[in-house]
Structures are given as structure tokens and as C-alpha cells.
Design a protein around this nucleic acid. Structure first.
Lengths: 142, 142
DNA sequence: ATGCCACTTCAAGTCGACTTGAAGTCAAGC
DNA sequence: GCTTGACTTCAAGTCGACTTGAAGTGGCAT
């Protein structure tokens, strides 16, 4: 597919993809991406590696962990992968929904507390947390 | 203010506030909360400590770091504190706005990709990232 | 043949918010 | 007096996604 001249060094791939070379090696350790060949010990990548990196960064921006992305990108291809993708998407959409709602609740409380005339933050927070009904205030787990 | 009988052990405070004792000691190290006195080397807290912890957890839930919370809770009190609080709120509200918008963008892309008929994730992400115009996809900094 | 730079590996460091473990101490109940 | 259990301190470990540093190598230009 790609003739020898089109193989890129790690530095070129990194520059094109907008990541550090150290990140590329890290991704390789994590099983996300591998060079086409090694020439004199050095990694040589096909141009597709840049795209693959774009996918990785894209998925990261979507909130997936590297482990999840590995699951997405790994074989087997086809229906099984599609199903897995759908599961991941559904889970992540639900998560994001939670994120948005929490962020909006926070914003509302913050804006209320910004301009209120509480004597101090302690009082304000006590009042405000009474309003939010303790949501997001008593979680010890992680 | 509080008579001796009302002082609580670290375990009691932790239980009432819903945090681990280790977290309480950590907060103390970080300058967020301190016991009223020590009795035989052991921490004794006034009941207000539970409220203060509630404030801390509340602010955390709002997305503040412990360092920021320390700034909020620390003296000086009064106008200076209020100004600082407003600054923090404004900054945090802006941050939260970014979070919400990114999350919503992610959700939109995810839902589109969930049901599309891309051959594989690579193609789908390439198409989708073209749509999002590269937002949030090429940041190397932290 | 020499200098230089981009590359190589591997180990360790970073960030934040804790938790966990080891070894010792205090107070109460039997 | 002895055990038990909640406490004490301090150091080190955890998580994820990298970065940084040290020491060595490949290959090209001068």
C-alpha cells in the first residue's frame, strides 16, 4: 500500500498529529498504535498512523480513556466491534448527561451565591446545599 | 462557645460529615480544617467542624480544588473575601460553561456516530472530527 | 572523521486527592 | 493487668496520561 518513501519518522508523525513523540511511544506501550516497521531500530510509520492518532485524540476528546479507545480500535472488526462501539457510546452519553446536569446545577448555585448577601461563604454554602438537597455533596467513594 | 462535652472525636466528625478520617487529616495538612483542641494527643472538634466539612465538600462538588477552597475559607473575612469569592465564582462559571459546551458537542457527535453506517470507527471519527472543526482535538498542553 | 541531531530504551517524576500500611499510644471494659 | 479498638504519625502507594532525564545509537553533512 505505502511505498518505502512514504514512511514517516516518529517526529514527523508527532508533528502532523500534534502530539509529542513521548506520547506516541506511550500509546505504543499501551497497545494503541504501532509503527509499520523499524529501520535501524527506529520507528517508521505509514501515513495512516496520523489518521489513527487523530482518531485516538478524537476519542479522548469525547471522554474515552485510553483503555476504552484500545477496545474500540482493536480487532475483531465488523459487527462485534460495532456492537461494542454502541455500548460504549450509550454508556458515555449517559455519563456526559450526568456531567452536564451537575455542571448546570453548579452554575446555578454559583451564580446565586455570587450575588447573595451571605455573611460568609460558610453560611452561603449551607443555605445553597440545603437548596440542592445534598446532591453531589456527600460522596465518599470514587 | 462549645462546652467540653460537645467536642467530637475525629471518627464522629468523619461519620457525620460522610468522609474518611484519613481525608480529615489530609484536609488538616492542607490547612482547610483544624481541631478545636487536642486531648491526650487526639483531635477534638467542635460541632461546627461538621458544617465546615460540608462547606468543603460542597465547594468540591462545585468544582473547586482544595487550594481554591483554602483561599475561600481562609481569613481575611469581609469585603476582601467577598471579592475573592466573586472572582473565583466568575472564573469557575466560565469554566463550567466550557465543560457543558464540550460535553454537549461530544454527545451530539457520539449519538450521530452511534447509528451511522461507517465502515469502522476510524472513518466515522474522521468524518465527525471534520464536522466539529477540530475543536478540542489538537491540544498538546495541559 | 567529526559533530550534531533526532532517535532509542528504561526508570523515575508529575499532578491532585486521597488511601494504605506500619508501628506506636490512649482510654475503657473485663 | 490485659485486651481491644479508636486513635496517633509518617512514609509510601494509587490512579491516568503522560513528561523528563540519563545514557546510548543511527545516519547525514561538513
Amino acid at each position: 500500500m505505502a511505498s518505502a518513501e512514504h514512511l514517516l519518522s516518529i517526529g514527523e508523525v508527532a508533528a502532523r498529529a500534534g502530539v509529542r513523540t513521548s506520547a506516541l511511544r506511550y500509546y505504543e506501550d499501551e497497545g494503541l498504535i504501532a509503527p509499520e516497521v523499524r529501520v535501524g531500530g527506529r520507528r517508521r510509520y505509514a501515513a495512516a498512523a496520523v489518521e489513527r492518532l487523530a482518531v485516538i485524540r478524537f476519542c479522548q476528546a469525547l471522554g474515552f480513556s485510553l483503555a476504552e479507545i484500545r477496545g474500540i480500535l482493536a480487532p475483531p472488526r465488523g459487527q462485534a466491534q460495532k456492537t461494542r462501539w454502541r455500548e460504549l457510546v450509550d454508556r458515555k452519553v449517559a455519563e456526559l448527561d450526568g456531567v452536564v446536569r451537575r455542571a448546570e446545577a453548579m452554575t446555578a448555585v454559583l451564580q446565586a451565591s455570587r450575588d447573595c448577601d451571605c455573611i460568609d461563604v460558610q453560611e452561603c454554602a449551607t443555605r445553597a446545599s440545603a437548596c440542592t438537597g445534598g446532591e453531589g455533596g456527600e460522596r465518599t467513594d470514587r
